[in-house]
């Protein structure tokens, strides 16, 4: 998990919160450090989620902005779930700037407080999909059998449900397929659907577009 927050105290709070949940937070106060880390890690090890403070006025380095970091996330870590929090979330201009920097970013209103942000992230990471749920951000549990699947690609597919996820290596693609086989062995209502070009998504049988409204993203 990547955290980008210019306030040192708040960054530490976020880091402790997510570390306690089993994540490995990569915490940065400035955008250029975060960008450097993203590029060093490469596409195969991109973070599962990024939480980005839109206003980085307190950052020790100002050569890059939150917008820059979002652009890099959109291009180099496109399957990373991104939440941007801003005190100006009502402004269409801010929304437009965020959308342009990262078209898939989720927006969170900073005025609702840090606890609200963390609760929202927890909901996004832990939301159940059919008979599956993610535990500690690290593995997928098939609830009826309590069996566990420890592939990070499986976690990514569940967390990103119902969106398409692109895997960037043969081993990741194989892991996604193995997860599909694991689901079939467990007679799960969820299946792995291939969209070609290393792109997969999790589908739930009997889940029509209309029915999806019963499962809103937090």
């Amino acid at each position: 998990m990547l955290l980008l927050e210019d306030d040192a105290e708040k960054l530490d709070e976020l880091r402790r919160h997510f570390a306690a949940q089993g994540f490995h937070p990569l915490a940065f106060r400035s955008a250029n450090r975060a960008i450097g880390a993203l590029r060093d890690r490469g596409p195969a090890t991109q973070p599962l989620m990024a939480i980005v403070d839109w206003d980085l006025r307190l950052a020790p380095e100002q050569s890059s902005s939150s917008s820059d970091a979002l652009c890099v996330l959109a291009r180099d870590a496109s399957d990373c779930l991104v939440i941007v929090y801003s005190a100006n979330a009502d402004s269409f201009r801010v929304r437009s700037e965020i959308n342009r920097a990262h078209p898939r970013a989720w927006l969170h209103d900073k005025r609702e407080g840090d606890a609200s942000l963390m609760q929202r992230v927890d909901r996004m990471l832990n939301h159940p999909v059919a008979d599956l749920r993610v535990e500690d951000g690290n593995f997928v549990v098939h609830v009826p059998s309590q069996d566990q699947c420890h592939h990070r690609e499986a976690v990514r597919l569940v967390v990103r449900h119902p969106e398409i996820v692109t895997f960037h290596s043969d081993s990741a693609t194989r892991a996604a397929r193995r997860f599909g086989e694991w689901l079939a062995r467990h007679d799960s209502a969820a299946t792995v659907v291939s969209h070609g070009n290393r792109r997969y998504r999790l589908a739930v049988s009997g889940m029509t577009p209309a029915a999806r409204s019963d499962f809103p993203r937090p």
Partner: peptide
Amino acid sequence: GRGRGSGAVKAGILTLGALA
């Protein structure tokens, strides 16, 4: 030269996410 960024995006090194 758009947005709040400077540096890389202004210099044209980064691609806007909407154009990725």
